[in-house]
């Protein structure tokens, strides 16, 4: 169990910076999700922590020791790959025992450790199977067992469930969370699925173009996105460009108080933050509805032609073409990607 400190880490390929002078501190026992679109540098960052890529510059401190020049076999990290990367010429037992044997544990110790970890991932009895005889979820569990049996200081997971179906993914996500809590192991989880990050993480690191956009708890990231990128990337967000002049913002014929400098800005409002109903202010029309189970996500056309997304209660039973009245609720303003005002 350990803390991790990344100091001004960069990875440059010729002229392109996959990771650009990035710094991040992760506390002992924390589960952190690196979240971002493909090409944001999150996997490269994880591979640098694991030792599979050498940073162009910067330090990687594990419990205060710089491991940047240390090869992966000598690092106290363990990685679970997206492709699970089980060794197909070995059975499950041999896969998990490989690292233990390299560490010169006695035969009894190896057997005891494997029995414990197999129980932890719920695969007791599958020791003699070959990877090809396991389902995708079981294969990924073996990969996790293979990593945690070595009691690494830091566990790294590189989109481990990307190739599994939604249901299994949610199930395994919960299991990983439980195992992580039980062992108290510092864990970094790379994903491009925001629901995975929101459900799993103590803290989320949102990345874009090799840089950190925002670090925060899932609640913070969702409720108070610091940048327009995060606002647009996490959850559903209405982003409408509008002009501020004299401390007031013109939106669909209404003037909103906005104590910021004059100029263009982006108004951001969540679909669930609209006021809906009589007297809300803006007379609009429902143009499309999507049933999302617990609620309806509706496209609503405002009088000035702008279309926005609005959460509606099922009880409202709206249909396409129905008139509706909505009003601005809590919103945020962004300029040059940064938040400049919240209300």
């Amino acid at each position: 169990m350990a803390s991790l400190d990344l100091q001004d880490i960069s990875k440059r390929y010729s002229n392109l910076a996959a990771v650009d002078t990035l710094s991040l501190s992760i506390a002992d026992g924390e589960l952190v999700c690196l979240l971002g679109p493909s090409g944001s540098g999150k996997s490269t960052l994880l591979r640098m922590i694991g030792g599979f890529e050498i940073p162009s510059s910067g330090k990687i401190l594990i419990d205060g020791v710089d491991v940047a020049p240390v090869p992966p076999d000598k690092r106290p990290t363990a990685m679970v790959f997206q492709s699970h990367a089980l060794w197909t010429h070995m059975n499950v037992w041999e896969n998990i025992a490989f690292g233990l044997k390299l560490r010169k544990f006695s035969r009894d110790e190896v057997a005891a450790k494997i029995a414990r970890v197999m129980e932890l991932v719920g695969l007791t009895g599958y020791e003699k199977r070959h990877p090809s005889q396991l389902s995708g979820g079981q294969q990924q569990r073996v990969a996790i067992a293979r990593s945690i049996v070595l009691e690494p200081k830091i566990l790294l997971l590189d989109e481990p469930f990307a190739s599994l179906d939604q249901h299994l993914r949610e199930h395994l996500r919960e299991e990983v969370r439980q195992i992580q809590r039980q062992l108290g192991i510092t864990t970094i989880f790379v994903t491009h699925g925001q629901d995975e990050a929101l459900a799993l993480a103590d803290r989320i690191v949102v990345m874009s173009k090799g840089k950190i956009e925002q670090v925060g708890t899932p609640d913070e990231i969702y409720a108070r996105p610091q940048t327009e990128f995060v606002a647009g990337f996490i959850g559903v967000m209405n982003l409408v460009s509008a002009t501020v002049s004299g401390g007031s913002l013109a939106f669909a014929g209404e003037a909103l108080s906005a104590p910021v400098a004059d100029g263009l800005a982006t108004l951001a409002i969540r679909p669930e933050d609209w006021k809906v109903g009589e007297g809300a202010g803006l007379k609009a029309t429902v143009t499309r509805t999507v049933n999302l189970g617990a609620y309806v996500l509706a496209d609503v056309a405002l009088p000035d032609g702008t279309t926005v997304k609005v959460h509606l209660d099922k009880a409202r039973a709206v249909r396409e073409g129905d008139p509706i009245e909505i009003g601005i609720g809590p919103f945020a303003l962004y300029r040059d990607n940064m938040v400049i005002h919240r209300s």
Partner: peptide
């Protein structure tokens, strides 16, 4: 698969060991 080789490095095998065992 390169990932298989990397996974072996990851659990503590040196380059020669990875070649021989994986």
């Amino acid at each position: 698969s390169r990932n298989m080789e990397e996974a072996a490095r990851d659990v503590g095998a040196g380059p020669l060991r990875v070649f021989w065992s994986i």
